[in-house]
Amino acid sequence: MKRFLLLLRSIRRTQGEGPESERTSGERRVMTDGGTSEKRSTFQRWLDSDIVQSAPFWLPPFLLMGFFVYAAIGWNFLLSLTEYSGFGDPDYSNLGLQNYWAMLDDPGMWAATRNTFVLLVGFTVVCLIVGLLLALLLDREIRFSRSFRTIYLLPFALSFIVTAQFWRWMYNVNNGIINQFIGVFGLGPYSWLGSPKLVLGAVIFALVWQFSGYTMIIYLAALRSIPNDQYEAARADGASTVRMYWRVIIPQLRPAMVSATVTLVLFALKAFDFLYATFDGYRPRRGADILATKMVRESFGRSEWAYGSSIALMLFVLSLGVITPYLYNQYKRGNL
């Protein structure tokens, strides 16, 4: 506290505010000019440095973030090394990697990892493609493009709880609209959310429906920033419409594609809430279990706290794996 006051005083001094500080700074100058001034100590210089001077602004959020985010991650890692389960307190005296070895032997773990990757890749790729096609169509100045834009973006504005409920009704085996519709063509009915073969695809489809509007908006923003000359130059160069988009326009959407991909992948890694709402809990049908649901189930369903923590850490490492290349890329381009 004392140091903080000192700091405030030094800030006031550098700002030259108030009659008192004016006098002191005046005195100091006289002394330096006279050649008899005291030498400023290292400590004094440290107090006057930018990082200390600006500490009142960055330090509080730094401490809060550090404690609630990074310390929590650290504690989570510590927990994953224990054998903490059931009631009681964790025992930190005997740490080891046994939970991570157990993961290797857990077939449920492998299934959840596989499903996570299928969801991640399938959802991201399909979303990017559908969003791109929608954006390209809307960018061609069609009629009512504003209305279409709103319509396509609307699902993204809805809560997962709401959209999950929609899709549960639509996927219903007996009277869901999807089975009714394909029934017209003599197909089905299929148990979309019940069959282990179909459930992951059905979930991905619903998520794509909700998220492609978002990708579309990101692409549209990038498309709008491409000058008209680029289209005309490509046409004058003899390119057909398809070739023009393929070779000139879409390559210029790369930065938009990268940032959309990062957002989508990070979402897919923790698509917990959607599954929770779809299956009314963290026990998805076989075939749709992902790491996030398994983590919650192990921890809060079975009270295997340490095992749950180690799954959480796996998810964390996977997320880092996605975001690190992106951050590195941004850093290299000087955007960070």
Partner: peptide
């Protein structure tokens, strides 16, 4: 694309993601 014309724009309209070589080859390729 079928008129056999080449145009130079005020903004140059070079394709930013292609090298000079690719920019120049583009019209011939298409």
């Amino acid at each position: 694309k079928d008129r056999d014309i080449a145009m130079v724009f005020q903004s140059y309209a070079l394709y930013p993601h292609m090298t000079v070589r690719e920019n120049m080859a583009f019209g011939l390729e298409e």
